[in-house]
Amino acid sequence: MKSTLLKSPIAFAQLSQAPQMEVVNGMLTAVRFADKAIESQRAHKLAICDTSAFQRVSIKGSQAANYLQQLGVTLPETANQWQLTDERLVMRLGNSEFLIEDQTQNVKPAVSELSSAKGVHKVSRNDAAFILTGNDIHPLFAEICEIDLVAELATENHLVMTVIAGVSATLLSQTLNGERIYRLWCDGTYGPYLWKTLLNIIEQAGGGAVGLHHFYPKI
């Protein structure tokens, strides 16, 4: 019996691009779509990257904040904010709801070690997660979202829950490797649709897909 391999929720939509696949956090993930130079050009212009392989969990409930703080997790102070500490991103989706994302399995306590307790509800996730970046991000956002995303995300550590191309999504803006990038999460079952839709617009604008290694070469 072969071992069970996890698959990115977007993998099906990426087949036609024939990316180089590697296992990241136990999940088969697209790490390269083209050689480094081409991916760099795309990232400069307009690019999309699948980061679904990062580990995620939601912790919600009246005692969620206390529970996480007791475990030493640094939390954003208010709702609709995010906090990046080492390789862990904590998004506060509401007063008592957190989405935690670890880039690697080195972060402690690992998401698998978090559990439900009194007033604490651990919720499993299957997000499709993306990075969007490039100089032409404004027209892309103007087409796929009714609100002024760039303005909304200009405030440091602010996150936005909105609708992207018809799909509910959470977004934030970060600086990664010196570049301004936008992170996006949505229900994984919408992932293939969103990937195809965004990539279609991005390719028409002269950009393209880039692999996870473009942003995280050491993962």
């Binding site: 929720p9 939509a13 087949l15 796929i144 649709y193």
Partner: peptide
């Protein structure tokens, strides 16, 4: 058109 569809993990 933005007409979202949901795909199951076994779609492939």
């Amino acid at each position: 058109g933005f007409h979202p569809h949901r795909y199951t993990a076994m779609h492939e």
